[in-house]
Design a protein around this nucleic acid. Structure first.
Lengths: 330, 330
DNA sequence: CTGTTAGCGCCTTCAT
DNA sequence: ATGAAGGCGCTAACAG
């Protein structure tokens, strides 16, 4: 593997000149630049970025901490991150935490050992927030909750949930069940607020029997729906806090011979690609997943490079997408 | 940021001894080891891995080239890769090629510039295979096709497609349409072979009118199904070459008032998580996505570390999963 | 068992 | 505009 020394020898120049010709061409004669390029070609030179990074104490890579890359929503956020990182010349380390605090901590070592210049956190988890305060390196949250501190990107989860519940109420529903995420999950907490606010505004009493906590998986959504449907006075609508659980709920309802939305309306949250193609298609809240990742990545790299230190909470806009699963019965 | 020198000073030892105490504890006294540990603690030392990697000319990271991380199947393969990389102390760079040759080439620079020790390729693309031959660094294919060279991991795509078509034929179908991936895609080519072999064995003439080429997306599956269903003599079954297109096909069929599987059987390929929860649930071929990624990663790291240079094609077993979408009519 | 020394490949003063 | 020299932080000889 040829080094810059080989190029220098081949070109009859010093390594310093070669370095300059490659990195700051304007500081070098047109002629020498050509000589260097020829030499690079001749010895098939590729800079050793390990060395360059050591020298500059920068790695030009960012770490993305994702609770699970197999989750389509997070995968989309990650895709948004990658697109910006790519454009700005950074690589991305994939840190799949699998919701494990231990794994998360291990991955943070990548930054502390100089292998990454900063991190983008996709989990809204509190614990990490707390430690973040003490962190000496740049962190940006791409999927924040109300309590997430700046710099961060998020949507108005409570507001979006409120809109969805309002939508169901407007369609005439009074018994609206909800399939929440894990009780302590910040996104679930925020969305629960919106759900309850909508009920209250409509004068509908909150009924704990109409709340079940899933784990965001389709199976847990199916199980929750089954329980709701065995209730003596069963709900006429189910507001699920993500699309996967809603899809599971549709499956349960259909298996019991119920027609969605005629007998039971079901709504999701996120608008993953499968929402538009489920049977029936799923009414949901569209989150700008890629844009959230992209924005977070822009902010992070700006920080890393010492540009304007954005210290705000960016609230991107969501959108209620009405599809078949909540269409007004007729 | 404290360096090994700070630790050495704090402990009253040389940097070499500190390094040894940390990396090869057995070469050092119990007592000095304790002193070093205390000093590490005292100055809050974290090794600079940029420096270590330069010294050893190794990066302890692998690059995964994935056509699109938002694709659930590839996301699962990637998760399998990450789990092994994690276990063996490697980090993973996410190289999302978005099916672009240009992006792929750029990402390969990570290896050539010493930032990654090897690459795992998820695309079965021919072009890359060709270049691979000349590559000077370790490459392993995780989702190979028949033409993919070793070392690689794959399933028997033709065999699996054959099984699926046989399954439909056994259920009494004679007009079996197929929604293929892009015509030149190696996986599509392999699966087409199996489809045609099954027809031939059953004495069913191959009908080009029953073949449509999608792009693996749900939308393309829906469009293809629509075309099939407008045919004067329409098919009674559709064999889709992935689950997404099958889900799109279910949507089209249902929208036209057809019942699946009663009026039209539909099958997929991959067994992504949504296959089991679609309405109706989807008959498909289960590919061991995580295991494929994991195996490929094991092979790659073994190569990197100079262990047994596995130079074989690993064919993992698939499984036909029969669900509602192809249940025998009754 | 520990210390001294050298060098991985690059870039950046400091000279010229 | 170019060259010489030093050093980023670490570890692997080589001595002792």
């Amino acid at each position: 593997m040829s080094s810059i020394i080989d190029v220098a020898n081949a070109a009859g120049l010093s390594t310093a000149t070669v370095s300059r010709a490659l990195r700051t061409p304007e500081k070098v004669t047109e002629a020498t630049r050509a000589r260097v390029m020829a030499a690079v070609e001749a010895v098939d030179y590729r800079p050793n970025l390990l060395a360059r990074n050591l020298r500059s104490d920068r790695s030009f890579s960012v770490l993305v901490l994702v609770p699970g890359i197999a989750n389509p929503f997070f995968a989309n956020v990650t895709a948004g991150i990658e697109s910006i990182a790519w454009r700005r010349g950074y690589s991305v380390f994939l840190g799949d935490t699998r919701d494990s605090r231990d794994r998360e901590a291990h991955y943070e070592q990548l930054v502390e050992t100089r292998l990454a210049d900063g991190v983008i956190q996709l989990s809204p988890d509190y614990g990490f927030n707390a430690r973040q305060r003490a962190a000496s390196y740049p962190i940006v949250h791409a999927c924040g909750c109300e309590l997430t501190q700046a710099p961060s990107v998020r949507i108005d989860n409570a507001g979006a949930a409120r809109e969805m519940a309002d939508h169901l109420i407007a369609a005439g529903h009074r018994r609206i069940a909800t399939i929440s995420g894990p009780a302590a999950n910040p996104h679930a907490v925020d969305r629960m607020k919106g759900y309850r606010a909508a009920l209250e505004a409509a004068g509908i009493a909150f009924d704990p029997a109409l709340v079940r906590f899933g784990d965001w998986s389709m199976g847990s959504g199916a199980a929750a729906a089954n329980e709701f449907l065995m209730l003596p006075n069963r709900p006429t609508a189910i507001f699920s806090m993500n699309d996967e659980m809603a899809i599971g709920a549709i499956q349960s309802a259909t298996a019991r011979g119920l027609r969605v939305p005629h007998d039971l309306a079901i709504t999701g949250f996120d608008d993953i690609s499968f929402a538009a193609h489920s049977t029936p298609s799923l009414t949901t809240i569209a989150q700008p997943a890629e844009a959230m990742g992209a924005k977070a990545c822009e902010i992070l790299i700006d920080r890393i490079e010492g540009k304007a230190a954005d210290d705000t909470v960016h609230i991107l806009s969501h959108e209620l997408i009405v599809r078949q699963s909540s269409a007004t019965a007729n």
